[in-house]
């Protein structure tokens, strides 16, 4: 009968506030690089090494080299998108533009042809927004209530359904593609944005439910018990106790869903029609369309434009994004 609140090891657990009268503060020794070296080399010790030690050169050198490699594609895309076609043909993809032009961006946004129409990426962008907003909201509402029910209101069979849901997350989408086409066709939503919203909600459910369930399970059970003694029921505890204290996990779920849904290609191409294609599908059709002369600068501008939404989310959310993917990764 352990009554200590069980807190999850990973950072996603509900963090109890530190005791205000907590006297036992663990003092950690300052961890500087050379202290570590000294510890390795025994008590005799050497003089602290300069910053340019062999070890530091290896560590920072490797990291800087790898970072440059990782940044390379982004850099190449940006410089290409700012060049004119003549410059691209004669020049080097790594060279900065001699003459900066924003024409490729304008063209990518509003004029580029997909082979079916020539209104550029803008159509795909607005389709993606129309898909994204309801999908994110709906999937988070459903998954959070679900996770809450699973964590605090278990009923007979609830764990079984949850297990099936999680196992379902491992089934390749391809296996379920066509049955869902039939289901959507039966309810008249095949080829519509609503249908795609439902699909995103369904496939977001396993990971989001897991995320919320684990979070709510890490909230001390006593809080939930106290609320029940206070006469709060299922919905009141959810809205007045759980949701207000779980805002970080809602943000994590939002990050996960915004990037996931925005980046989706397969569901977009399967469940919508050409004029409703999301941005990723539109982008692929523009770049890989076989008609006409390849305009690499327009293609790269279009590619960056499509990546802009998740990249913005990524750079703004910072550590929360890492928490999100860590949560998404650590199953069970």
């Amino acid at each position: 009968m352990t009554k200590a609140p069980h807190l999850m090891k990973n950072s996603l657990g509900y963090a109890a506030e530190p005791e205000a009268n907590d006297g036992d503060v663990t003092l950690r020794p300052a961890e500087s690089p050379f202290q570590q070296v000294r510890l390795e080399e025994g008590p005799a010790g050497r003089k602290p090494r300069p910053f340019l030690s062999r070890r530091n050169i290896i560590v920072y050198g490797t990291l800087i080299f790898v970072s440059l490699y990782y940044l390379l594609p982004l850099y190449v895309m940006i410089v290409t998108s700012l060049k004119g076609m003549p410059e691209i043909r004669v020049g080097n993809i790594f060279a900065p533009p001699l003459e900066i032009t924003f024409q490729p961006w304008v063209k990518a946004w509003s004029e580029a042809c997909t082979g079916l129409n020539c209104d550029g990426l803008s159509r795909g962008f607005f389709n993606s927004v129309q898909i994204l907003v309801p999908s994110v909201i709906l999937s988070i509402i459903i998954a959070s209530v679900n996770g809450y029910a699973l964590a605090n209101w278990r009923f007979k069979g609830s764990e079984t359904f949850f297990a099936i849901l999680i196992v379902g997350a491992f089934i390749p989408y391809q296996v379920m593609l066509y049955p869902i086409v039939i289901m959507l066709r039966e309810i008249g939503l095949y080829g519509s944005l609503t249908g795609l919203v439902i699909v995103h909600t369904i496939f977001g459910m396993p990971i989001l439910t897991l995320l919320f369930r684990n979070y709510f399970a890490s909230v001390p059970q006593e809080l939930f018990k106290a609320a029940r003694v206070d006469g709060a029921g299922f919905w009141r505890i959810y809205f007045q106790i759980m949701v207000p204290m779980s805002l970080p996990i809602f943000v994590v779920a939002m990050i996960l869903q915004v990037t996931g849904i925005w980046n989706d290609f397969l569901f977009g191409v399967v469940y919508t029609k050409p004029d409703l294609y999301p941005m990723t599908v539109q982008l692929n059709n523009i770049v890989n369309s076989t008609q006409g002369v390849k305009e690499y600068n327009v293609n790269m501008a279009a590619t960056i434009l499509t990546g802009l939404v998740p990249l913005t989310v990524y750079f703004i959310s910072g550590k929360l994004f890492v928490r999100g993917i860590a949560a998404g990764a650590v199953k069970g």
Binding site: V145, N146, A149, V175, M183, I202, M205, W235
Partner: peptide, 28 residues
């Protein structure tokens, strides 16, 4: 008892049983 929790779990149950299990079996 626990009626609300069961109602709240309906989307999960449908997804698990109809889409995941049902869809997979159908395809196979």
């Amino acid at each position: 008892r626990n009626f609300s929790a069961k109602v709240a779990a309906i989307p999960m149950i449908i997804t698990a049983m109809v889409v995941f299990v049902g869809g997979t079996v159908w395809t196979v």
